[in-house]
Simulated scan of single mutants.
Amino acid sequence: MSSTASELNALASTTTVDFYMRLVKKDGAEKHFVHASKFFTAFWGLVAIGFALFANLVENLIEAVNILGSIFYGSILGIFLVAFFIKVIKGPAVFWAAVISQLVVIVLFKTTDIAYLWYNVIGCVGVIALAFVINLVINKD
């Protein structure tokens, strides 16, 4: 229980401080941010419950982690590869390429029987290829 409470507290604190206070409500009272933190604790608790329900559908926890990881890690790898090795591609192109690639991977996961490890490759290659195309379209000059 203490590990779970620590995890939920850390996620809620990070969400409140790094996102909510910076992007949503910059000038709020302490009481407001305490309520926001409680809300985010409940939110992350529901996310954890959702993951537990999903993990119940597969054979074991390792497979559940690999499936969820494969859905998201390919796009993240593509972002890092572009950032480190392809300096001519700018941030907005990479952002939109990652969003589109992630949506494609999620649609493929829901509608096809592709082995889940292929989603890493599809997401990564999708981000790199789309970032090139989007960067060309945005920077026609």
Results as ranks from 00 to 15, higher is better:
S2N: 09
S2Y: 08
S6V: 05
S6P: 03
E7S: 06
A10P: 04
A10D: 06
S13Q: 06
T14L: 06
T15Q: 07
T15I: 07
T16C: 01
T16M: 04
Y20A: 03
Y20T: 05
M21L: 07
R22A: 09
R22L: 08
D27F: 06
D27E: 13
E30L: 01
K31P: 03
H35S: 13
K38H: 07
F39M: 10
F40A: 05
T41L: 01
T41A: 02
A42C: 07
A42I: 12
W44T: 05
W44D: 05
L46W: 07
A48P: 02
I49Q: 11
I49T: 10
G50E: 11
F51C: 08
F51E: 12
A52L: 11
F54W: 11
F54G: 12
F54K: 02
V58H: 00
N60Y: 05
N60V: 06
L61G: 13
I62W: 03
I62E: 14
I62Q: 11
I62L: 13
A64H: 12
A64G: 11
L68Y: 04
G69I: 12
G69N: 08
G69E: 09
S70P: 02
S70F: 01
I71V: 04
I71R: 00
Y73L: 15
G74S: 12
S75H: 09
S75V: 15
S75W: 13
I76A: 04
L77R: 05
G78A: 08
I79A: 01
F80L: 14
F80N: 03
F80S: 12
L81S: 06
F84V: 09
K87C: 10
K87N: 11
K87S: 11
V88P: 04
I89D: 06
K90C: 02
K90H: 14
G91W: 09
P92I: 13
P92R: 02
A93V: 14
A93T: 02
V94G: 05
V94Y: 04
F95I: 15
W96A: 04
A97S: 15
A98S: 15
A98Q: 10
V99F: 13
V99E: 08
V99Q: 10
I100F: 00
S101Q: 01
Q102S: 13
Q102F: 12
V105P: 00
I106M: 06
L108R: 15
F109G: 02
K110G: 10
T112I: 01
T112W: 10
A115M: 15
L117R: 14
W118G: 13
W118T: 14
W118H: 15
Y119G: 07
V121A: 11
I122L: 00
V127P: 01
I128G: 00
A129G: 14
A129H: 06
A129W: 14
A131Y: 04
V133M: 11
I134E: 01
L136K: 13
L136Q: 10
I138L: 15
D141C: 00
